[in-house]
Amino acid sequence: MNSLGIGIDLGGTLIKGAAFDLASGEMLHEEVAPTRDGEREGGVPAFLAEVRKLVARFEEMEGRESVVVGVSSPGFANRAASQIISMPGRLEGLEGLDWPEALARPVTVLNDAHAALMGEIWQGAATGVQNVFLLTLGTGVGGAIVTEGRLLRGHFGKGGHLGHASLDFYGETDICGMPGALEDMIGNHNVRERSGGRYESTRELVEAVKKG
């Protein structure tokens, strides 16, 4: 029985792909490709072209088609888990992209933080846990909640997404129009601005703090 599954994590800078045997949970292959946000290739967003290449390579290496592709991405997924319906300001061409149609395969789409937590439950730090909260720190800030074993998605796919929670009502608005959002206070996307040009990434800032 074919049990090849492919996971794609679409980030602002990199696309991370992996192929799994879904029956055993074994990771078979992994690759990374550039996101190339804002570029186009073959009449489609470049990130889609890169994802198609990753899927094709994994299937070629395994000599079989995947039974499902999972796509995790920033933004809010629709209730059918087939597309991202809201991702303002980044990843041009992502909003409204129908992934099952674009890849001509069964595809499940989740917000990246939601997908990260489901991965931890599948075979990670949250295996066997019924109630858990996860906070993701990257280009932006995301979050996910599982309660009584169920992912809290919310009506608009925003469940657990604390990155756009307001911590300063009088602060500058973020990409969603939220003033003083958590994402703008600790996210990686504006470290250079927040540090007065001293650091280019959160990693650099943390290393500097460690060194005193």
Rank of each mutant, 00 (worst) to 15 (best):
G154T: 07
N190K: 12
G196R: 05
H155I: 15
V206E: 04
G42T: 06
A49Y: 01
M118V: 12
G138F: 12
G70C: 03
V206G: 04
V146R: 04
G75F: 10
D184V: 02
I15Y: 09
L97V: 12
E31L: 02
V68E: 08
N188P: 05
I186V: 15
A104R: 13
G128S: 08
E183F: 03
A18E: 01
E59W: 05
K16D: 02
P74H: 02
G143P: 11
L167W: 00
F169M: 10
L22Q: 08
R203D: 08
A125H: 09
I175Y: 13
T13D: 14
R79F: 00
E120P: 02
D98C: 08
D112K: 07
E183Q: 12
A116P: 03
A125P: 08
V191Y: 07
C176Y: 14
N78G: 03
G143T: 12
A126G: 05
N111E: 09
E207N: 11
M87F: 11
H161A: 12
G38Q: 11
F76R: 10
T35Q: 02
P106C: 09
A115V: 07
E172P: 00
P100Q: 13
G159Q: 06
I145V: 15
G140R: 07
W99R: 00
G157I: 14
G180E: 00
P179M: 01
E172L: 03
E39L: 14
L22M: 13
G143N: 11
T127C: 10
F76V: 05
P45I: 08
K210A: 15
E60C: 07
Q83D: 12
I8F: 07
T202G: 15
E41Y: 06
M87C: 15
G25W: 04
E120G: 07
S66N: 10
A46F: 04
R40D: 09
G159I: 09
V107M: 02
L182T: 01
H114R: 01
G25K: 02
S201E: 09
Q123E: 13
R52T: 03
A49T: 03
S195N: 11
E65P: 13
M27W: 04
G163I: 02
R153T: 13
C176M: 14
A77R: 05
